[in-house]
Simulated assay, not measured.
Amino acid sequence: MTAPLRRWVTPVLAVLAAFAIVAGPAPATAAPSSPTPSGHAPEDDEDPLITEAIADANRGYIRAKAQLEKSKKRQLQLALEVRAAQAQLDALSPQVSAIAAQSYRTGRMGAMTMLLESHSPDSFVRRAALLDELNMVNAQKLAEVNAAKNRAEQAKIALDAEVREQQKQANTMAREKAETEKALKLVGGLGFTGGLVSATSPVARIGPGRTADGDWKPESCSENDPTTSGCVTPRTLHAYKEVKRAGFNRFVGCYRPGGPWEHPKGRACDWSLQKSGFSPWHNNDMRMYGNNVAAFLIRNADRLGIYYVIWNRQIWFPATGWKSYSGPSNHTDHVHMSLL
């Protein structure tokens, strides 16, 4: 094969080899996940409700799904472009084969040799014209194929990046769904709270007496109760301070003498919905305050050593979650917390 011919054929063969890569299997798109509620706070609200966080997450899911569909359409367009470019290469391939075969039969024949073998001026001119025309045609076709290949490569690179981003978004939405379903379950769900509960709670400091294996050491009623003249355990006092530190500053009572359960042991407190005394909730403010106190205690149960929480005719244990509750008090006027 002559040097000029080699210079022309080699790029074409390189293009053919490159298309074996470019026209390979298209990247798989991530299947859209199910609609995904979110526990994350919208940027324009420092203390969003659960319902607002869910709506924000669903909007994000819809956007991600639309972008995934757009990616699929772009993949189809890319496949058509690759096939069109491959068709150009297929049309060019017979010419490459013919030239290669001629070179094999005649040996290393360059352009000058081809022209010098002309037997007349007219033959020389015709050969020169044909050689020039062939080079122009082939150069034009090769330029078109290279351009198509470059377009396909760039589109594929961009599409791969976009699909990876959409897969990331879909995975994020799936995680948000799982996290918020867990959060909803913790606070009792939308039916229990009416959606009137913050999507997040402050993180409490770990209470005293927690062992390395997560258990809690027994404690006696050894600390002065800040709400009465009685006593509370160190862990109850710690939980009391953490609830206050989280911003819940309405009326609260802890120690109560006599009777069963945790109050006379200094291991319980009742968080009222109003600044003094107790009254059942009868507006959204009171209901949301009770919801948020309960949510804070439950979200930090492992850090505070919560035994159980009672609120609004429901009782929560770490092992069982929320269950219906009926007792001497229906607890619609306060949130009860008991400590281990």
Rank of each mutant, 00 (worst) to 15 (best):
S38L: 10
E219N: 07
D333C: 00
T2I: 08
E219C: 05
G247W: 11
A129P: 03
N291I: 02
E242N: 10
L131Q: 09
Q95T: 13
P121Y: 01
I99P: 02
E69V: 05
L340Q: 05
V335D: 01
E69K: 05
M173P: 06
S97E: 14
Q140G: 14
P318N: 00
A85Q: 12
E144V: 06
A139T: 13
T227P: 08
R164F: 11
A174G: 11
I21S: 10
S326L: 02
T172L: 15
S279L: 08
D333M: 00
T236I: 09
L184I: 13
S38T: 12
S123I: 07
V145N: 09
L304N: 01
T200G: 06
D333R: 00
T227A: 07
P37Y: 01
A246N: 14
A161Q: 15
S97Q: 14
F124I: 05
A170W: 12
L297I: 02
R303F: 00
R108A: 07
R299E: 06
L13Q: 14
F317E: 03
R235I: 10
A101Q: 14
D56R: 05
R303Q: 03
P257R: 06
Q140K: 11
E223K: 12
T332Y: 00
E162I: 08
Y255G: 06
K65Y: 07
H282W: 06
W281R: 05
H331M: 01
F124T: 07
I206Y: 03
T172K: 15
P37T: 04
E262P: 07
A295L: 02
R287G: 01
A199F: 07
S279C: 03
P25F: 02
A100N: 07
A147P: 09
I306S: 00
P280K: 01
Q169L: 15
A64S: 12
L68Y: 02
D302N: 06
G188T: 09
W322C: 03
R313S: 05
D225T: 09
V12W: 13
A87W: 08
S120E: 08
M109C: 04
N330Q: 03
A212Q: 14
R250P: 11
A79F: 03
G188L: 10
G290Q: 04
P208M: 05
G110N: 13
W322K: 04
S272K: 07
G305Y: 00
K323V: 02
D333L: 00
K323N: 04
M173N: 15
A91Q: 15
A246Q: 14
A319Y: 00
H336M: 01
L186G: 06
